[in-house]
Design a protein around this nucleic acid. Structure first.
Length: 551
RNA sequence: UGGGGUGUAGCCAAGUGGUAAGGCACGAGACUUUGACUCUCGCAUGCGUAGGUUCAAAUCCUGCCACCCCAGCCA
């Protein structure tokens, strides 16, 4: 399925093109390598790579790696891998750290023009003079240093002559601005840290607010698409661009974030879950990280279709997980190989079937494809059926088995339930039924029944492990985080949140493949999990089929 | 009680002065070798709210309300 949609960002681009503000489109995907990508990032990725593609321009991957405290090589590697998995290719790959020398020169220019100064206030003191949301800040006592002194001090900062935090470089803008970001923002700070890419080669690091607009200009970015939290940084972004002396002027465009109800997004929260051992890792299938989704068998196309269909606006959206599931199912339904399996078996005996007799039935592997391959199944006197496909108290609303009810056994005959056995605890152990001659699937049978159930012949089946996932967050905490970033420090993990292992029976003679997706009738979509071996198959349930009604 | 942003159905979302698209979810029905898929129909006298302008307002004006972001030498 191809999903197409236009959005307000395209309107802006079209207008810029039409009015000659730019003659091409270039974007950038600027992740900070401080965590794994999750579904919340997909919108940004689709926007940046997609828009460049659409307008015949390019999109660079540029790591915003200006803060070594939070970053690591593990994340830079995983991001590239995840972007590729999503099916995108960057034009060039860059690092904010590549531009440090150029950034430095712009800073020098600013100092020479009296637009930036070295401030000796400690972070605490600086914070005090910044004012509050309702009161203006006060000028730093170092604000009016001479150009010479600033140049000297900044040079010595670069040389590593001062301790971390003792001085910083600030843009001289307006301490009384109602926009906190314009109150002489810090644009360079001293950091003696080992950077994953450049080691200890720089003692001063530009801040995001300074390096980002500059880097956009160096690369020729025309539209710098970012999250809503940067909206009030735009005046600063423009200030830097305008005062940089650089020719190319990029334009910052903000769009709103996408959240999924009940999903824990946000790098620090996912990290916490991993650290606390609540999940098995960044690729835990219960997570909405790209790795988790991937391990769960979700196709990248589905994710892209989802974000495109969800649309892009400026109001933050908290999307119903069913909306995502719809797109996942839509693709899975087409590509999944159908296999018969029973997750929680009870025995079904066909009383009027000849002992030892087996009959071949044939079923399509991909019923959605006209050119599907087919496979043989063997129907016999005894089958294993899903426990939930039988109820002991008759209910005409129930379309499956109860005494007196008729149902089709997928690919085989229509059978009528006659009786069942119960053990000492009241659990159903065996169900009895009679088959009706002439009702075999594919024959000229005209008889219709409401339900069709799946089955497995125990003589042609083997035991496997299937993992079913419970939600990570319970209903209560979903309510609490609604409208928020879904995860505050208070979020509660559902105490029942776990991976349930089920011993299922699956038809033998199926060649399972790691790349394939499977559908087990009525139990949803599955894929092989990573710890699968030759003789030990482990399935992850990707997602259930649309909820089956049980009234 | 500063600044910025956003409010259209249960959830997303189009709409830019001419009488509320579309999708998800939901309900009814048809089809069916998956209660899936597919198909058909239904689903806002209403656009945060109160006024105002206009022949005409979700769209323009004014006031109010709610939510989100900003006081890192994070991004």
């Amino acid at each position: 399925m191809e999903v197409e949609a236009t959005n307000f960002i395209e309107d802006i681009i079209n207008k810029d093109l039409a009015e000659g503000r730019c003659d091409h489109v270039q974007t950038r995907h600027p992740p900070e390598p401080s965590g794994y990508l999750h579904i919340g990032h997909v919108r940004n990725i689709v926007l940046n790579y997609g828009l460049a593609q659409k307008y015949g321009g390019v999109c660079n991957l540029r790591y915003d790696d200006t803060n070594p405290q939070k970053e690591s090589q593990e994340f830079v590697d995983s991001i590239q891998d995840d972007v590729h998995w999503l099916g995108y290719n960057w034009h060039e790959i860059h690092y904010a750290t590549e531009y440090f020398q150029m950034n430095y020169e712009v800073a020098l220019k600013l100092i020479k023009e009296g637009k930036a100064y070295v401030c000796d206030l400690s972070p605490e003191e600086l914070s005090k003079t910044r004012g509050t949301l309702t009161e203006p800040g006060t000028n730093s006592p170092y604000r009016d240093r001479s150009v010479e002194e600033n140049l000297d001090l900044f040079g010595r900062m670069k040389n590593g002559e001062f301790p971390m935090g003792s001085r910083c470089l600030r843009a001289k803008i307006d301490m009384a601005s109602p926009n906190m970001n314009m109150r002489d923002p810090v644009i360079y700070r001293i950091q003696y840290l080992n950077h994953q890419r450049i080691g200890r080669s720089w003692n001063i690091y530009p801040t995001y607010d300074f390096s980002h607009p500059l880097d956009d200009c160096y690369e020729g970015v025309t539209h710098s698409i970012c999250g809503p939290e940067f909206e009030d940084h735009r005046p600063l972004y423009n200030w830097v661009v305008e005062n940089s002396g650089l020719k190319n002027h990029s334009r910052q465009v903000e769009y709103a974030n996408l959240y999924i109800k009940g999903a824990i997004l946000g790098k620090r929260f996912i990290k916490k879950l991993v650290q606390d051992g609540k999940v098995t890792g960044f690729d835990d299938p219960r997570l909405y990280s790209l790795r988790g989704l991937r391990r769960r068998g979700v196709l990248p196309e589905s994710l892209k279709n989802f974000v495109v269909a969800a649309g892009i606006s400026k109001s933050n959206s908290l999307i119903d997980p069913e909306f995502l599931n719809h797109f996942i199912r839509d693709d899975l339904n087409r590509v999944s190989k159908r296999v018969m399996a029973v997750l929680n078996p009870i025995k079904l005996v066909i009383t009027n079937w000849e002992d030892g007799k087996e009959e071949e039935v044939e079923l399509e592997d991909y019923p959605q494809n006209e050119t599907t391959t087919k496979r043989k199944y063997y129907f016999g006197k005894e089958s294993l059926i899903e426990r939930e496909d039988f109820i002991s108290i008759p209910d005409p609303k129930f379309h499956r088995l109860y005494v007196g009810a008729e149902v089709r056994l997928k690919g085989a005959y229509i059978v009528k339930c006659t009786d069942f056995d119960v053990d000492d605890n009241g659990n159903v152990t065996t169900v009895y039924a009679e088959y009706e001659e002439g009702t075999k699937s594919g024959s000229n049978c005209t008889k219709k029944v409401k339900g069709t159930i799946h089955w497995v012949n125990p003589n042609h089946a083997r035991k496997i492990e299937a993992r079913l996932f419970e939600n990570l967050v319970d209903e209560e905490s979903q309510e609490e985080v609604e409208g928020q970033e879904h995860a505050t420090d208070n979020f509660k993990i559902n105490p029942n949140s776990k991976i349930i292992l089920n011993n299922a029976y699956i038809e033998d003679d199926v060649d399972f493949n790691f790349e394939d997706r499977y559908q087990f009738m009525r139990n949803g979509y599955f894929c092989l999990d990573k710890d699968t071996t030759q003789d030990h198959l482990v399935f992850n349930r990707t997602i259930t089929l649309k909820d089956t009604k049980k009234k």
